[in-house]
């Protein structure tokens, strides 16, 4: 379903982040333009079977988000390839891909289009999305009036209405009230049961233990440990308690 072959990602970062033309020219003239090679991912190789739920854990800056970006095609790796079969739907962070001035309804179409859904599909599924998000009449309101919980519900509903082949989730499961959290977890389970492959980044080991089949532990930009959920999670916990 998804295979990642020897993916390495190097950033060539200037010492300080320069984003103005003046700074760049000044530094260039002073000869202080030093590039640091920063390896964010170092020879990562693993593959994921259809229907698996893969948890990715590791400390901050270990390269988890970069790995997800490479898988979703946003970043090109320095070397190595990622092969994917099927469409990838990322769950966006709160508010990304929404326009505050537009109504919930218009945002469903906008966000859906960004996620790659067709118009016909959205027309068919529109009612389902509204129903799942529990927004009711609020759907005609501009979403600048929404609470963050409502926004998250809408985002989750749009992202999961399709049965994507690969779903990428980056720390956003704890949205909405308890009722919606349970509902969203149930929907995730349903998707996984239906054969969706999920890549799941979280710092919450409980969630990982509950949902994942396998866990990839990134440490120092490399795969430190990979394998069955419980054993990797135990090792991770032990690593941190020492």
């Amino acid at each position: 379903m998804l295979s990642i072959n020897h993916v390495t990602m190097n950033f060539r970062m200037v010492n300080d982040k320069i984003d103005s033309l003046k700074e760049y020219i000044v530094k260039l003239l002073q000869g202080k333009l030093v590039y640091n090679k920063l390896t964010v991912l170092d020879d990562i190789t693993f593959s994921v079977e259809k229907g698996e739920v893969i948890g990715i854990i590791g400390r901050n800056g270990a390269g988890k988000s970069t790995l997800l970006k490479i898988i979703s095609g946003v970043l090109q790796p320095t070397s190595g390839q990622v092969e994917t079969f099927g469409n990838i739907v990322p769950m966006l962070e709160l508010g990304a891909g929404f326009d505050a001035e537009l109504s919930g309804k218009e945002n469903i179409y906008l966000n859906g289009a960004i996620l790659g859904y067709s118009e016909q599909f959205l027309n068919e599924k529109f009612d389902e999305i509204v129903e799942f998000s529990e927004l009711g009449n609020f759907i005609e309101m501009p979403i600048r009036n929404y609470s963050s919980g409502m926004m998250a519900r809408l985002a989750f509903s749009i992202a999961t209405v399709v049965n994507p082949e690969i779903l990428i989730v980056d720390e956003i499961l704890s949205v909405g009230d308890v009722g919606f959290q349970n509902k969203s977890r149930a929907r995730m389970m349903e998707l996984m049961g239906g054969g969706t492959t999920v890549l799941f980044v979280s710092h919450s080991l409980n969630q990982i233990r509950e949902m994942c089949n396998r866990v990839v532990w990134l440490e120092n930009h490399k795969i430190y440990l990979m394998g069955e959920t419980q054993s990797v999670c135990d090792a991770y916990q032990k690593f941190w308690s020492e």
């Binding site: 970006k69 966006l92 962070e93 508010g95 960004i114 790659g116």
Partner: peptide, 9 residues
């Protein structure tokens, strides 16, 4: 930027 870093379009 929030979209470009998340979704491939």
């Amino acid at each position: 930027s929030s979209l470009i870093t998340k979704v491939y379009v």
